[in-house]
Design a protein around this nucleic acid. Structure first.
Lengths: 341, 341
DNA sequence: GCTGGCACTCATTGGATCCGAGTGCCAATC
DNA sequence: GATTGGCACTCGGATCCAATGAGTGCCAGC
């Protein structure tokens, strides 16, 4: 039964190709790995692997290159988990530990991921919808102007300036503040519309316009503005790749990375925080990313319902075990930090 | 006196080179422009221009390409201001007008600039140091926990969680809030340390630890964290450029753009909001940007002391008049919006 | 000072050739 | 039946060469 060896050959091909970035031939394969067979045998195995669609040759007289399907098999069945070195673990801990607020956490995370994996890193801000209200602050600017500040338990802060339809004193603002906080403080943002729905009915007619105005602003604030929700780092790593990785140019990839919609779809259904999802080449939803792979996972929140996603993106010729390990570890630490903060 | 015509020739060379991205020869020059002289005459002028270092030829039998020095002269003396089309003006106004808060303004601005100029756009967040305190909000989370929220007149919000050395009731928090706001609300952040310095001395001994704790946090918050202060867009435009623009690869440029330190230096001494600064090729401080040009200006604040900078970056082969116009116009609109909001 | 003419340069292009890495296949071997 | 050495074959890449032509510099004449 030589099925096992064929998989060994596939693994060897992928490892060599990832590290050398050159199509790998039967001879160099047996030289670099202890396969215990001759090049001719390996060639037979390679022919079968090619028939099955796991590898391909760029041109007749060249070595083999893994296909998307080959990487897929490698990731699913062949790659053993690569443990994090104590030094790396320490680096993650100390680098993320120094963060002072949510923005800082997110930015440190994305740069750390880019550095660990030498790929493009992508981190999504904790979703507003899945956070809870820590506090709603109303700041009296003038009698007809109010600053609405919404603070979530993940440390996110959203604010809006608001022109009131009627005048409101400092004390009036304080009343409003209590009115709102009693209802929504501590509750998930998603529940806010329901919790506030009856507000206009429980206040006096004259207070109503102001209450409605504040309520409208608060509810508007809950609507995500996708523009600001994703942060990138390490795009320069894309330029490190060669013509074999991205046919022609990295431009479509850079363009895809600038479209927030595309990035959001990468985290469309984030897996739970324990699972790392790998999306290879044409498995990706967006055409511009068909030459790339994405390793992503959820972080924060409960493990079943993560707060948001993070991950790395690179050429399909990627060190998957390394990327998976890094992504998982970073996600875990970020989750911890958010839970503490 | 043929000096004028020589400058006309330089202008023509730059215009052609910018639009065609190919070294321009004497023959095609006279074909595309009404210079009123023969190719031979133009050749003589070109020889002089080359002697003076304004143009160069990539190889002997090729046309001429402008040098950094040539672009410099073009920008300083030759380029007439390109007016904004009404459509563009309208687009700027409506696109920026829809912004709901500071983050939104900044992100819309950077994307707008990238789209208008087809270059990489860079926008710096309004500097904390040059803003004033609109309000300092202290939110009582528990008796030993406080959320400090600093809101500036530019709409920027910074927050910190704080563990108190001693217990503090809701009323105590309210007192503290007043204590601080009376002193610093409305004042420039830069003055805050001076305005708060006497605080520990005017409160009771038992209140002092808490006051000092809050004070420390507030002052820490004033220290800029450079990591979050700059936003990019349009990096995909870099990949659009050819081998002539960036020798070899765009990687050093992308790398420079990821180093916040480098970007901050681009705005090191922002010119006043009326002036647009152009930094060409090797005039740039960072080696990675020696093949690029930066068009930047200040925005917001008083025109003498702008709040921060914005600009675009691209190959030295850039449409300078267009970029200058776009940068100036966008800066003006953003300044207006910040002043209103 | 401008222009037409002309010899010269040299990157680019296309074609022809060689080289070699790598393959597929087959007969021999274990 | 799996493995292996041998061998013919393929074809991309490197090298060389000649032809091409865009563009130049220079000069004599207007």
């Amino acid at each position: 039964m030589s099925d096992d060896r064929r998989l060994d050959v596939l693994r060897a091909i992928i490892e060599d190709y990832v590290s050398t970035n050159e199509p790998v031939g039967s001879k160099s394969l047996v030289e670099r790995h202890q396969l215990g067979v001759s090049p001719a045998t390996v060639r037979n195995d390679m022919a079968v692997l090619e028939d099955e669609g796991f590898i391909t040759q760029p041109h007749t007289s060249a070595g083999r290159v893994p296909t998307d399907k080959g990487y897929r098999l490698f990731v699913d069945r062949l790659s053993s988990v690569k443990p994090l070195s104590p030094a790396e673990r320490k680096a993650i801990e100390s680098f993320l530990g120094g963060a002072v607020d949510l923005d800082d956490v997110v930015h440190r995370t994305v740069r750390l991921l880019a550095q660990l994996t030498h790929q493009v890193a992508v981190v999504q801000y904790p979703s507003l919808a899945r956070s809870s209200v820590r506090h709603l602050e109303l700041v009296h600017i003038s009698d007809t102007r109010l600053l609405v500040v919404l603070i979530t338990d993940t440390g996110r802060v959203e604010q809006r300036m608001l022109d009131l339809p009627g005048a409101l004193s400092e004390d009036g603002v304080a009343e409003l503040r209590t009115l709102f906080n009693v209802r929504i403080a501590g509750s998930p943002l998603a529940d806010a519309p329901g919790l506030l729905a009856d507000l206009p009915d429980v206040v006096t007619t004259e207070a109503r316009p102001n209450v409605v105005a504040v309520m409208t602003t608060v509810l508007e604030t809950l609507i995500e503005r996708p523009e600001e929700r994703i942060v990138l780092a390490g795009t320069a790593n894309l330029a490190r790749t060669t013509a074999l990785d991205f046919p022609g140019t990295i431009r479509p990839v850079l363009e895809a990375l600038e479209e927030q919609v595309v990035l959001l779809r990468l985290f469309g259904e984030v897996p739970d925080a324990q699972t790392v999802r790998v999306s290879i080449g044409e498995e990706n939803p967006h055409e511009g990313l068909w030459t790339a792979s994405v390793v992503s996972t959820g972080y924060g929140g409960s493990s079943a319902v993560p707060l948001a996603g993070l991950g790395v993106l690179g050429p399909t010729r990627m060190d998957y075990p390394g990327a998976i390990t890094a992504v998982r570890a970073v996600a875990r630490y970020v989750g911890q930090i958010l839970a503490e903060g």
